[in-house]
């Protein structure tokens, strides 16, 4: 039975539809990734799931509790790691954790031990008594994660948890998430970094403009939708040349935009030989050349015509 159920979720802010009919389920112990550019609706879904925002329409439940009818029950099973560093900079790590721990009803006898465990998990034990304002960005992100785990949630939501983080802290956060998942924690992970989604998530929902446009395992998405992409910079190209390029056997589609030809290919390596050959034959100059292997980025580009970081 799914731990999280989202059915036909709509959320509108000031006439802007942030989430437009989204449905998905998350099974216990699963990591589901929400992959999409800024403004795709990922954070709004988290806001609804943690009861911060009311759905405009649709049914949303966590562990069998409706987010609208039983928000208190939902709050007790979810943990949230927000995109903002939601910590008190004047307090140290222990003071931050102690305060939020009390709000999450962690028993007094258990609280100090739990704080120690969490600090050890995120690697901040040695910095426990330092004011958070003196932490690096990565350390703040790790403490942000620890606060999200204070209530010992069954379902953890992480909203872009690696934004502005150094590679070392990013790896530490990945390891934390994988370790928590191995212990059975169900996780919803939003990102616009396709590498993170591929690395961490069992399934990925690709979002754009408030909708889920694809939902599957990263491998299956790449296998079925991913194509090798080749970008060729040109000064000018006529319709006849475009038609000849489109007709190449390894090319699925070609578009011309801003002096760049974007090729979706069946096999990027083979298509490249054909494309270069035709450019030589017609004596057409290339100003740049870029080959993108099939991945979630290329899946997203194929599905939306946009880049993830747009």
């Amino acid at each position: 039975m799914a731990l999280v159920k989202v059915e036909n979720l709509y959320k509108t802010y000031d006439r802007v539809r942030a989430v437009d009919g989204v449905s998905f389920e998350i099974q216990p112990g699963e990591i589901l990734g929400l992959l999409g550019p800024n403004g795709a609706g990922k954070s709004t879904i988290i806001n609804v799931l943690c009861t911060y925002a009311q759905p405009t329409a649709g049914e949303v439940s966590v562990a069998g509790h409706s987010v609208t009818a039983e928000p208190d029950a939902v709050k007790r099973v979810v943990g949230v790691v927000p995109q903002d560093i939601a910590l008190y900079p004047d307090l140290n790590a222990v003071e931050n954790l102690r305060f939020f721990g009390r709000l999450y009803d962690v028993p007094k006898a258990r609280l100090e031990g739990h704080i120690g465990e969490l600090l050890a998990l995120v690697g901040l034990t040695e910095h426990a008594s330092r004011r958070v304002e003196h932490y690096s960005g990565g350390m703040k992100r790790r403490l942000n994660l620890a606060v999200g785990l204070l209530g010992e949630p069954r379902f953890l939501m992480l909203d872009e948890p690696t934004v502005g983080v150094d590679p070392q802290s990013r790896n530490a956060i990945f390891e934390n998430i994988q370790a928590l998942n191995r212990q059975g924690l169900t996780i919803l992970y939003t990102t616009h970094y396709m590498e993170e989604a591929e690395l961490l998530c069992g399934r990925v929902a690709i979002m754009d403009e408030g909708r889920i446009i694809a939902l599957d395992t990263p491998q299956h998405l790449i296998r079925t939708l991913g194509t090798g992409l080749i970008h060729v910079g040109v000064r000018d190209v006529d319709e006849e040349m475009l038609a000849r390029l489109q007709a190449l056997p390894q090319v699925k589609a070609v578009t011309h935009h801003n002096n760049t030809l974007a090729f979706e290919t069946v096999d990027a390596q083979r298509a490249l030989l054909d494309i270069v050959g035709l450019f030589n034959e017609t004596d057409t100059a290339m100003t740049s050349l870029e080959i993108l292997e099939p991945n979630l980025e290329s899946v997203f580009i194929q599905l939306t015509g946009k880049q993830l970081r747009d």
Binding site: P82, D84, I85, A86, L103, G151
Partner: peptide, 13 residues
């Protein structure tokens, strides 16, 4: 603005 108010609101308070 810092986000701690939101964090308090989504805690069981």
């Amino acid at each position: 603005e810092r986000g701690t108010f939101k964090r308090l609101l989504i805690s069981p308070v």
